[in-house]
């Protein structure tokens, strides 16, 4: 007879309890709501997948999803190259390093709603530095009226807030490259681009993957800042999935549809992260089959 040491279960019990209380049980209540309907009095009716079908066919949901996808795409397209660029330009030694790192870390330390408030004031056309400045220059800027201005403001705010994260991650990858790689590249006569493409990029690929995933997830779930700055307006122009969800669940108290939406939202994030991860890791392995493409 093989003896099994069941004490091990005792050891993992706290973790199971913690995860159960904090994640699994709340998630299950959401699942529960998503397949039922209620008219109050704590009476529930089984509706099956009706809420999911309704949600997927709803124009309101699709619009919010498109807005959120567009926002995440813009954020990745702007912040990733910009972050790499700044990291490459940062000094590797000397007093400049600490100065740059502190400056870079500052935006990351500010709470979301404070960032929102800062930009809300910053962009106001009556008193804000940006808004009033642009207005006095004759630029027709008004983020509370014009959808494009509202988008520009929110994207700019996110770039200001989060590019630092990409910079810091890339920088940590860059400083880990031994000096000898650059020496070998000089001897091989490599151009600046070739050094980036064949030495720096492969070395920061892993941290870059983390940066892309973090920035995607955060931007896809963005709530506080646009809520504070535009409140989802003008009209529905900046109503992202998260804002829409809160309006539905808290504003209208439609628990069933809101629960169904939450699950769909969650699954989309999970799916897209998996796609990003797979694409970036698989492309890494396949690069060896593409011969004869240098610099």
């Amino acid at each position: 007879m093989k003896t099994v040491n069941n004490k091990a279960w005792l050891m993992v019990l706290p973790a199971i309890l913690l995860v159960g209380l904090s994640a699994i049980i709340p998630l299950m209540t959401v699942v529960n709501y998503s397949v039922q309907d209620t008219f109050g009095n704590n009476e529930f009716f089984w509706v099956g997948t009706e809420w999911f079908q309704e949600m997927l066919h709803s124009q309101r949901f699709q619009n919010a999803l498109q807005r959120t996808l567009l926002f995440s795409t813009l954020i990745l397209v702007i912040e990733i190259p910009l972050g790499i660029g700044i990291a490459l330009a940062m000094p590797k030694r000397g007093i400049g390093v600490s100065v740059c790192l502190v400056l870079m870390a500052l935006p990351l330390l500010i709470p979301w709603n404070v960032v929102g408030t800062i930009w809300q004031v910053f962009a106001r056309i009556d008193i804000g530095l940006l808004g009033h400045g642009l207005a006095s220059l004759g630029v027709d800027y008004n983020y509370t009226q014009n959808s494009f201005d509202a988008w520009a403001t929110i994207v700019l705010m996110d770039v200001w807030h989060w590019t630092s994260l990409v910079v810091l991650l890339c920088y940590s990858g860059l400083v880990a490259i031994p000096e000898v790689y650059y020496q070998a590249a000089r001897i091989d006569g490599a151009s600046r681009w070739a050094v980036f493409r064949y030495i720096q990029l492969p070395k920061i690929k892993r941290v870059l993957l983390i940066a892309v995933l973090l920035r995607f997830m955060d931007s896809f779930m963005i709530y506080t800042e646009p809520f504070v700055v535009t409140g989802g307006g003008p009209g529905n122009a900046t109503t992202f999935l998260s804002i829409d969800l809160v309006q539905m669940a808290v504003g209208q108290f439609d628990l069933g549809p809101a629960a169904a939406m939450s699950l769909i939202y969650f699954l989309i994030i999970l799916l897209l992260c998996w796609v990003f991860y797979t694409v970036m890791t698989v492309s890494d392995q396949n690069a060896s089959s593409n011969r004869g493409r240098i610099g």
């Binding site: 031994p178 020496q183 011969r291």
Partner: peptide, 21 residues
Amino acid sequence: QFPVVYETLTVADNLAFPLKN
């Protein structure tokens, strides 16, 4: 002292690198 190779390139591309440059 420590072998420097362009890790994402193939062996042949590594050797071709200085010539292509």
